[in-house]
């Protein structure tokens, strides 16, 4: 067992966890943040994607010890109160989700993608950049549309700030 201290969605949290605990299980089981999902056991599907220190990673492949001391953002920490993050809004507006299971991971990856590429995203780049996230429902068509839409919204939002 180790004492783990994290900043999760802006709040300091501490928890005792077995050293073999994966970050995703700490988030889900101990912190009750069940928006982060587990869809595979080979680090491929991306349903567990969260941000560690600002970068999208697969929380199913991070031991809690590795994350100790880090800043974590999960899907629950993306919106500001009742106001959806532009990426969340774009997924809703473009029907970028169906069953919703891969969606939190998709959104967390997509936010990181837009941060890294700025406004310079095109369809081909979005498709390549989504390599680490698997969706079974949408055929990705509307996910790609959502990300491109959100990239535009985030650019506008950044310009306004």
């Amino acid at each position: 067992m180790s004492a783990i201290k994290l900043t999760v969605n802006g709040k300091s949290v501490s928890a005792d966890a077995e050293d073999r605990t994966l970050l995703v299980h700490l988030l889900r089981d101990q912190l009750g943040l069940t928006g982060t999902h587990v869809g595979c056991d080979t680090s491929q599907c991306g349903a567990c994607t969260v941000h560690i220190d600002g970068r999208a990673v697969k929380s199913c492949t991070v031991l809690v010890g590795q994350a100790n001391g880090s800043k974590i953002t999960t899907i629950e920490g993306l919106s500001r109160g009742d106001e959806l993050h532009p990426m969340q809004a774009a997924f809703r507006d473009n029907h970028g989700l169906q069953c919703g299971y891969c969606t939190p991971g998709m959104i967390m990856s997509a936010v990181d993608m837009v941060h890294r590429h700025g406004g310079k995203l095109d369809e081909a780049t979005v498709r390549q950049e989504l390599e680490g996230n698997i969706c079974r429902c949408t055929g990705y068509h509307n996910i790609v549309k959502s990300v491109l839409d959100a990239a535009g919204r985030m650019k506008v939002a950044n310009a306004a700030e």
Binding site: L22, T42, S43, T61
Partner: peptide, 24 residues
């Protein structure tokens, strides 16, 4: 030894590797 963990953790999850300790 463990750095990113993206080789070792997947095999540990499958219980195909069982290191007594991981050194990050």
């Amino acid at each position: 030894y463990l750095a990113g963990g993206h080789t070792l953790i997947p095999v540990m999850k499958q219980r195909l590797a069982s290191p007594t300790a991981v050194i990050d």
